[in-house]
Simulated scan of single mutants.
Amino acid sequence: MDLAPGFLLCLSIFASSALFLFIRRRNNSITGKLPPGPPGWPIFGNIFDPGTMPHQTLTRLRDKYGQVIWLRLGSVNTMAILSTKAATEFFKNHDLTFAERNITETMRAHDYHKSSVALAPYGSYRRVLRRLVTVDMLVNKRINETAYIRRKYSKEGFEFFVVMSRLMDLSGKGNIVDFFPWLKWLDPQGLKRKMTKDLGKAIGIASKFVKQRREDKKLSDNNKRDFLDLLLEFEGNGKDEPAKFSDQDLNIFILELFMAGSETTSSTVEWAFTELLCNPESMIKVKAELSRVVGPNKRVEENDIQKLHYLNVVIKETFRLHPPLPFLVPRRALQDNEFMGYC
């Protein structure tokens, strides 16, 4: 079965033309064969082709050009992977070759990309963060232990959520600067300026959380530990991993957890309700399952989720129809590489 359209879009791999040309000049003996793709306009290339529903456009292009296609978005050369077979080959045999991320200009505000789990340069820092997330944070035991924290809400927390929503909106907007880098100094859409302002506010709020936690730990002997405690207590070897996380690292990590877990969740819930309202039969099935598993007039707890099988199917279908992330985390080639007969 082919990958869902939303996931296809997230598998797009970007390589800046500057890097691509630099590699070609160093390897003049290589005669590369590029993947097929639609012809583009002079200067602009295929930048107008994706339209307002790029994941659907890519699906149509796959039918015409195949499972791997080549696009030129302004000055950015792009290889898009559009099938399960190609994606499997990529992740199995070429993951490290394309380990770097292509950083958009808005995500460079306050050096966000340097401390981000998703965008940090390939190396020891990113490996440590990912290990902490997969091994120590996003496991059932840790998530269940911190359920009481997620139930807390405050005025400052609401303000933080509002700012985070704006950041998600800014990070998802197409920025002409990313496709025509010589326009960086102009920032014609003002996205970098807005991101710098709102991200500064978010970092300020996050830093208060960190400061408050440090003070609370001095006064309390509470044995309960959450994600922030884990980060504050981290001690690396100082050689192939950082000895400690800086305040900037902590603040950015907090922001990223909220962006990945809060705003995306609310967006998914809104779309799920919208789709259920448009499909009354599915709505009836969801209500019946909730009454049977949870019971009438009772709140759904986190430990109920794994028992709600039909609701889980609804959520997965919502992910397919409405991918919660408004932006891509595209990859960038570190060196010349042959992929499925193309290079």
Rank of each mutant, 00 (worst) to 15 (best):
Met1Ala: 10
Asp2Asn: 06
Ala4Gly: 07
Pro5Val: 04
Phe7His: 06
Leu8Thr: 01
Cys10Met: 10
Leu11Met: 12
Ala18His: 12
Leu19Ala: 09
Phe20Asp: 05
Phe22Ile: 06
Phe22Ser: 13
Phe22His: 13
Asn27Arg: 12
Asn28Met: 11
Ser29Cys: 09
Ile30Trp: 11
Leu34Lys: 11
Pro36Phe: 09
Pro38His: 10
Pro38Arg: 03
Pro39Gln: 10
Phe44Ser: 05
Phe44Pro: 03
Gly45Glu: 01
Asn46Val: 12
Asp49Leu: 15
Pro50Leu: 06
Thr52Ile: 15
Pro54Leu: 10
Leu58Tyr: 13
Leu61Asn: 02
Lys64Asp: 14
Lys64Gln: 15
Ser75His: 13
Ser75Glu: 15
Val76Asn: 02
Leu82Ile: 11
Glu89Gln: 15
Phe90Ser: 02
Phe91Asn: 09
Ala99Ile: 11
Thr106Lys: 00
Met107Leu: 14
Met107Tyr: 02
His110Ile: 05
Asp111Pro: 04
Lys114Cys: 13
Ala118Glu: 02
Pro121His: 00
Gly123Asn: 06
Ser124Tyr: 01
Tyr125His: 12
Arg131His: 10
Val133Lys: 05
Thr134Tyr: 08
Asp136Val: 00
Leu138Cys: 05
Val139Ile: 08
Asn140Cys: 02
Lys141Thr: 07
Ile143Asp: 01
Ile143Ser: 07
Lys152Pro: 02
Ser165Cys: 11
Ser165Lys: 07
Asp178Phe: 03
Lys184Pro: 08
Trp185Thr: 15
Lys192Arg: 15
Met195Ser: 07
Lys197Met: 13
Gly200Ala: 08
Ala202Leu: 08
Ile203Lys: 00
Ser207Gly: 10
Ser207Gln: 15
Phe209Arg: 05
Phe209Asp: 02
Val210Trp: 03
Arg214Cys: 13
Leu219Gln: 13
Asn222Gln: 13
Asn222Gly: 11
Phe227Ser: 00
Asp229Ser: 13
Leu230Lys: 12
Leu231Trp: 03
Leu232Pro: 02
Phe234Ala: 04
Asp240Val: 06
Phe245Leu: 09
Asp247Arg: 04
Phe253Thr: 11
Ser266Thr: 13
Ser266Cys: 08
Thr268Ser: 07
Thr268Asn: 01
Glu270Ile: 04
Trp271Glu: 00
Thr274Ser: 14
Cys278Glu: 06
Pro280Arg: 07
Val286Asn: 02
Val286Arg: 02
Leu290Gln: 06
Val293Ile: 15
Gly295Thr: 03
Gly295His: 03
Lys298Ala: 03
Glu302Phe: 09
Gln306Ile: 11
Gln306Tyr: 11
Leu308Glu: 02
Asn312Ser: 11
Asn312Pro: 04
Pro330Phe: 01
Arg331Tyr: 08
Glu338Arg: 09
